[in-house]
Design a protein around this nucleic acid. Sequence first.
DNA 1: GGGCATGATTCTTG
DNA 2: CAAGAATCATGCCC
Length: 336
Amino acid sequence: MDEQPRLMHSHTGVGMAGHPGLPQHMQEGTGGTDGDGRKQDIGDILQQIMTITDQSLDEAQARKHALNCHRMKPALFNVLCEIKEKTVLSIRGAQEEEPPDPQLMRLDNMLLAEGVSGPEKGGGSAAAAAAAAASGGAGADNSAEHSDYRAKLSQIRQIYHTELEKYEQACNEFTTHVMNLLREQSRTRPISPKEIERMVSIIHRKFSSIQMQLKQSTCEAVMILRSRFLDARRKRRNFNKQATEILNEYFYSHLSNPYPSEEAKEELAKKCAITVAQVSNWFGNKRIRYKKNIGKFQEEANMYAARTAVNAANASSHGSQANSPSTPNSAGETGN
DNA sequence: GGGCATGATTCTTG
DNA sequence: CAAGAATCATGCCC
């Protein structure tokens, strides 16, 4: 292949023979009569080159075929392949056999844990169960949100799988294409099976880096989804009217000491269908907000006081005699 | 969309 | 450690 440039070099070199500016070694040693012999050689070579360019395509093909069929060709290619193998190995032998990428393993583990890359179904419910556990077990009304969560997760899962499939298909197509190409070329230039193998592994590495990007963005999507559903603050729901009334009733009827005991909290929690912690939160918030702005809550206080008075009156009329019904305008200061 | 209400969280305090 | 206080983030109404 690289015969021609060298020929051209020697051509120009010899052509300049005898030139005053020519380096010494070019002029020495060739001898007087040899000069004519070299000119003769060059002439032959030039002639050969000219005949090659003059050859028709058919002739060239025929020669190529002849070369391909030459009995020495396989042996020659084997040797060339061996040489190539050695040089290639010495160049990049060090970077072969890299260990599994820890980041990729992390991503894989996470996708598996989130039920995105694992077996069909079931995985998502694990995450949903985690969401349920994190939400404090308020129960009842958050099942709708979990189905929403599951739906979104399965959407992500679907996108992930179709993309992954697409990548795999593209990778396979490209690999077979390159392999065919190399096999085809191996008839005209020395390519060992090992080299093809190496090329395939390079392709796979490139595609797996693309896959890693896909995995990374999928993980990000899952994390965002998770944080949206697991962050309790984001899914704050106002208590229903009945629960608020029960809590307010207790609060205003114990205004002088609005600190329910553990048992009272449990009772209220049961009545309101909320957790004890929520009851505690509610009373904490209520106390501080009431204290900060009593005027604002006065109307509410009067209303609940009146209501408890009516309740007490009803109870007393049903029973024998009331002991001491609280006065409506004293904001229900029953005292504890 | 702005503003207030409200449940939850976090930090401080006694 | 529980209550208070501050703050956050969402819900809801106008």
